[in-house]
């Protein structure tokens, strides 16, 4: 097997005195879609922040395509092809749709090409190109956010809680898009608290709990292991 696109080794990170990541080990093979699951507070989003350079790790290593990148600047990683779609509305609300798309060209693909791809895939955005992004519906904003993943041809796509606060139908649509991006060969690490939709598109799944990856494997296996635990715990 070739060098994994993303390899995280014994990663630790903390907020103040509280350690949130306590030795995370994770590898995402090239071209794979991995779903990272786990309850709220397990450290999933912190992991995303550390990988994307938004948060400093206290120890441990992050390799992207075999290159050691711990401590690299967020914007440098973004220009190198790490596309991170953070949780929440990840668009600029006071810029128009077209201006949002223009900014996506920092990742290396020309602005014209970004616009072309985005409008081809989401004709809705073409209709609203001069509208302020903040005045669109949640689903439309998420389409705009996904355009960056679609159009910038990233080496690794990090998706953080794509479905948060969105209506089911929109979530379905979004995951169709994720599936399509995956089909084009992009490696994806997809963080979700709610497994169902994410597991549909995933090749592998990993489970995080209390700051560690506690299980990895095929989606089926993971689901089996986890369901016991979860249901037991919820009682």
């Amino acid at each position: 097997m070739s060098v994994p696109i993303l390899e995280v080794v014994d990663l630790h990170a903390a907020y103040g005195r509280i350690e949130v990541l306590r030795g995370v080990d994770l590898a995402v093979p090239r071209g794979a879609v991995m779903a990272l699951l786990g309850p709220n507070g397990a450290g999933k989003s912190t992991l995303v922040k550390v990988i994307s350079g938004q948060k400093k790790a206290t120890s441990g290593d992050v390799h992207l395509g075999g290159v050691h990148v711990r401590g690299a600047q967020t914007e440098e990683l973004a220009r190198l092809g790490l596309c991170t779609v953070p949780e929440g509305r990840s668009v600029f609300p006071n810029l128009t749709v077209q201006e949002n798309l223009t900014l996506m060209s920092y990742a290396g693909v020309s602005a014209e090409a970004v616009l072309e791809t985005a409008f081809a895939y989401f004709p809705r955005l073409l209709e609203r190109r001069s509208q302020l992004a903040g005045t669109m519906s949640g689903g439309e904003q998420q389409m705009l956010a996904m355009s960056r993943a679609l159009a910038s041809d990233p080496a690794l796509l990090l998706l953080d809680e794509l479905s948060m606060g969105l209506a089911p139908l929109i979530v379905e649509e979004l995951y169709d898009t994720v599936g399509r991006i995956a089909a084009s060969g992009v490696t994806i690490l997809c963080i979700e608290q709610f497994a169902r939709t994410a597991l549909k598109v995933a090749d592998y799944a990993a489970v995080m709990s209390h700051g560690r990856v506690v299980a990895t494997g095929e989606p089926g296996e993971i689901l089996e292991t986890m369901s016991d635990v979860i249901l037991g715990g919820a009682a």
Partner: peptide, 24 residues
């Protein structure tokens, strides 16, 4: 211009601009 757009974007959310690859 793109850099001018980035100027306005960095008012909204500099952290997101970095994720886009811009340099606040």
């Amino acid at each position: 211009t793109r850099v001018g757009t980035a100027m306005r974007a960095s008012v909204d959310n500099p952290e997101l601009l970095r994720l886009f690859g811009g340099r606040p």
